[in-house]
Amino acid sequence: MTSAGNRPVRIGLQLQPQHADYATIRRTASEAENLGVDIVFNWDHFYPLFGEPEGQHFECWTMLGAWAESTSRVEIGALVTCNSYRNPELLADMARTVDHISGGRLILGIGSGWFEKDYEEYGYEFGTAGGRLDDLGEALPRIESRWSKLNPAPTRKIPVLIGGGGEKKTLKFVAKHADIWHGFGDPEVVERKVAVLDQHCADLGRDPAEIERSVGVQSDDPAELGAKLLDLGVTTFTIGASGPDYDLDRLKTWIAWRDKING
């Protein structure tokens, strides 16, 4: 089991860009920043994931470019970018550009994709889960290679977050390419995933402590759940909020818990 070590606890908000007008989304991102959140994520879909399936929705990366200008402190990123929707070299350039606009605050969150409606409506080949994972495995080194060729270069080593819990492929990609792993589940599930990730790191000769552990949480009482996840090396906790109104009460509770833990 990997210890959290000296890594501080961080709190993220996944500001889901569904069922709301953009003015409300922008205002909520600013409110979250003012509350002291560490990261504001959106997601990379073209339709709502729940609620009215044809409800209001906005695109991910153009929004990140706008957030790069409308925020000043928080890190920003997608939780997560769908690898299928953009050529890897283009995505690398987009990430580099948002990195510069934001003054070095971008996290490149990426995953293999899963929401079939997005693919069908926008003309992408859905294929199979295994095929999409293979595509992600091919894209990651291409993204890294393109960053090394861009002029100007990124402002920093852009952190790569890989989302998913697949034990044979996804967690192996995390061990090889990621700075942050993002998963879901109760502590028992997370404990298994962390053990698998640690073994992949050992196989590759990488120190697993280099990889930040991030988990999506839904509890309104962080004390018990947070303590259990901290024991597993998780230090980043992300709360989701959906439109139209974006209730941030749960986020405030987790921020207060973070401040108590970090001292």
Rank of each mutant, 00 (worst) to 15 (best):
A4T: 12
V9E: 11
L15G: 03
P17V: 03
T24D: 10
R26S: 11
A29G: 11
I39D: 02
G51I: 05
E52K: 12
M63A: 14
L64V: 06
A66G: 14
A68R: 05
E69Q: 14
S72Q: 12
A78N: 06
C82D: 07
N83R: 06
S84P: 03
S84G: 10
T97N: 14
G103S: 07
G104C: 12
G104I: 08
R105F: 08
R105Y: 03
I110Y: 00
G113Q: 03
Y119R: 08
E120F: 00
E121M: 15
Y124D: 13
F126C: 12
L136H: 11
L140M: 12
P141C: 02
I143K: 05
R146I: 07
A153V: 12
P159M: 04
I162T: 10
I162M: 05
G166A: 06
I180M: 07
W181M: 03
R192P: 05
A195T: 11
D203S: 14
P208W: 01
A209Q: 14
S214T: 02
D221F: 13
P222N: 05
P222S: 04
P222C: 04
V234Q: 09
T235L: 03
F237S: 12
I239M: 13
S242N: 15
W254D: 15
W257C: 13
I261N: 10
N262A: 15
